[in-house]
Design a protein around this nucleic acid. Structure first.
Lengths: 204, 204
DNA sequence: GTCTATAAAATGATAGAC
DNA sequence: GTCTATCATTTTATAGAC
């Protein structure tokens, strides 16, 4: 968590508690569908106390998104231009799938935000995300030009990694309804399936 | 639209107007994030007049979802066990992509609902959707067993069609932000990309 | 720092005139 | 059928005691 400098220990702790509670609530109901009451209750604090640490509901949401944006971009950042192309892309896909499995609330928080037109993070999407994506797409295109992996549209290849992996977090209730499963066994199947998919897709 | 029997022309017209307005609003903000004020304004009617045609906000949402569920399952229904496997699956994928392009609001309506745990349609997901998916997955598995297409997990193959195509509607703002495009050119690219992807994926 | 009480605005829904 | 007026409740946010 950034921006925690110059605060007492109790302040840090409570801000973290509130952000954790807000993640739980916002990821379920979206920004407009969530209330301060729910967040306060989830955090085990009174509503005025929540507003003692953050100036407004919107401020909590904005802080949460900007704190998590870094985490969200991290897996892509690690894709190495000097590594083996197929290994790098497959490893990126696996990291993204792990994030869906281990951080489904974060995935749904972003999904809610983007679904509703990304009012709070459109700038970051057009800035940081676009820049990083363009950079990594260029690397992938380079690999394609060198004949190291099969040719396709690098940007849409990245989109396909995002959609295929995030689907298991964002649409979890539907996946479970269709598979009739309750736990996390779908992720084992998903990893096998997606591993085979991308291995085949990238092969010349 | 179903369930419009036994009503006058003006009733049908206004109910349709309200449902169209509700689609616009609910698809943007989700159920809890949407207000009757917004729906009424969008429909060009007064709030009490909206509630003359529907008993509550929830009733509008439920009616909308159940009216559109049929439309939503239609493309999968058309997948023919007696057709050519690769043709059938590719055609289904294309129908789904067309739905994302032509009915993005409907896609986002369902995405919002499922993202929030599908409180209003969990029954349909475990019922109609699961049954239809199981049925079509069995057909696909049969094709795989006959060696007509490459072997993989049929349920996850269907998930991958859903996620890859719906991504362009549900995350449109992100796709556009990254591609720097304003119109619909991403769908042309997507069709080419996904066509190649599934052609390769299904090949033995 | 944390709480109770409450203000101020919004939201879902109803009453009743026309 | 449609409207204005209004009620009851929820919700964001603040005031002020402790």
């Amino acid at each position: 968590m950034a921006k925690q400098q110059g605060r007492t220990r109790i302040q840090k702790k409570n801000r973290t508690t509130i952000l954790e509670a807000a993640l739980e609530v916002f990821s379920k109901f979206g920004f407009r569908g969530s209330t301060l009451d729910q967040i306060a209750k989830q955090a085990g604090l009174s509503k005025p106390n929540v507003l003692y640490y953050f100036p407004s509901k919107e401020a909590i949401h904005t802080e949460l998104l900007s704190c998590l944006m870094e985490t969200w971009l991290d897996p892509l950042l690690d894709m190495d231009a000097n590594g083996d192309p197929k290994t790098e892309i497959l490893a990126y896909m696996r990291r993204k799938l792990q994030m869906s499995r281990d951080f489904p609330r974060e995935s749904r928080l972003f999904a809610n935000e983007i679904l509703q037109g990304a009012p709070h993070i459109l700038g970051e999407l057009k800035g940081e995300l676009k820049d990083l994506t363009d950079e990594k797409a260029a690397i992938i295109s380079g690999w394609m030009d060198q004949g190291l992996i099969a040719k396709s549209n690098a940007h849409h290849l990245l989109f396909s990694i995002w959609s295929l992996t995030q689907h298991y977090a964002d649409f979890e209730v539907q996946v479970c309804a269709v598979l009739g499963c309750g736990g996390q066994e779908q992720y084992q199947q998903a990893e096998e399936y997606l591993d085979a998919l991308f291995t085949k897709l990238l092969s010349i």
